[in-house]
Design a protein around this nucleic acid. Structure first.
Length: 277
DNA sequence: CAACCGCCCTGGGAGC
DNA sequence: TGCTCCCAGGGCGGTT
């Protein structure tokens, strides 16, 4: 399940294989992802050049340049189980290989997604900022736009558990269940605590821990879970470093009491009742 | 409006 | 061995 560090890792892994290649063709075998894969891609993409890949939250943005317009974006979200691989043409298709983007360097950018929670979007001659999927997104966590003060102000007069708050995209992007769980553990904040009770000092600490845990995961090449592989097929190495996520009933690494599990908005939350207040 | 909840989807693991 | 049930969970859309 790619979260922000995995998406960033995929972006970095893809760039050297993809940048400045020309798309020869696109094959859409299964258009039914979260939203239908736009069929216009079949005419829009061929003979266009991929000039760059950037990221907004968990969305990968492929800059596409053709003769008519310089500002097209191919947007790919990997959802829960999506992956992108750069493969040779003789690599046999696997089940759930839904889309192939055939490049002029004799490689294929292959989209694979068993659960089909991912999405492929097309933004023609425009930027992401005004797009319906992007205009309400909160700041990027690894930039100076995310500060404790920003979250403190954003949370004023709201009443909801802090974990739900930091996992909401309009507050801050890219903090999914794994890293929300980890950051709250390191910040020693109880995931159930309502945001209106969090002090500015606690917000500052939490923001610091969010940035630290995301940066560390990127350094490690993303967390390896069932569905995540690097774009070159090698797994990441972060999972063994998780302190709370996936460690229900195991001893807290700080106080050695057993970690607790609860469910919040249908997601598992693991935390230490002793350390997280 | 804020907050909440159900739903989309498939594979894998547990239990019987 | 095969069946059923549950879980993974981001993000949307409907309801309270």
């Amino acid at each position: 399940m790619p979260e922000l560090p995995e998406v960033e890792t995929i972006k970095r892994g893809l760039l050297p294989h993809i940048k400045n290649t020309v798309i020869k063709n696109i094959i859409i075998r299964q258009p039914a992802l979260r939203w239908p894969v736009p069929s216009i891609l079949k005419t829009a993409l061929p003979n266009s050049k991929i000039t760059d890949i950037t990221r907004r939250g968990k969305y990968l943005l492929f800059k596409i340049k053709n003769t008519d317009s310089n500002n097209n974006l191919l947007v790919i979200h990997l959802g829960m189980s999506g992956s992108l691989r750069v493969v040779d043409p003789d690599i046999p298709l696997k089940k759930h290989d839904h889309v192939d983007i055939i490049l002029d360097n004799n490689k294929i950018l292959r989209y694979h997604d068993p659960r089909r929670f991912g999405a492929i979007l097309w933004i023609e001659n425009g930027s992401v900022d005004n797009h319906i999927r992007f205009k309400d997104l909160g700041p990027e966590p690894l930039t100076d736009n995310l500060t404790g003060e920003y979250l403190f102000n954003k949370a004023k007069n709201k009443k909801l558990p802090i974990k739900n708050f930091i996992m909401t995209n309009s507050n801050v992007v890219g903090v999914g269940n794994i890293y929300a769980t980890e950051a709250l553990f390191y910040a020693k904040i109880n995931p159930l605590k309502s945001v209106d009770l969090i002090t500015l000092k606690e917000w500052n600490k939490l923001v610091l821990e969010i940035k630290k845990v995301l940066e560390k995961a990127i350094e490690c090449g993303g967390t390896t879970l069932k569905d995540f592989m690097h774009s070159d097929g090698k797994p990441g190495y972060f999972k063994q470093q998780l302190a709370a996520y996936g460690r229900a009933d195991k001893p807290c690494i700080k106080c050695h009491n057993a970690l607790s599990t609860i469910r919040q908005q249908g997601r598992a939350t693991v935390y230490c009742e002793h350390c997280q207040k």
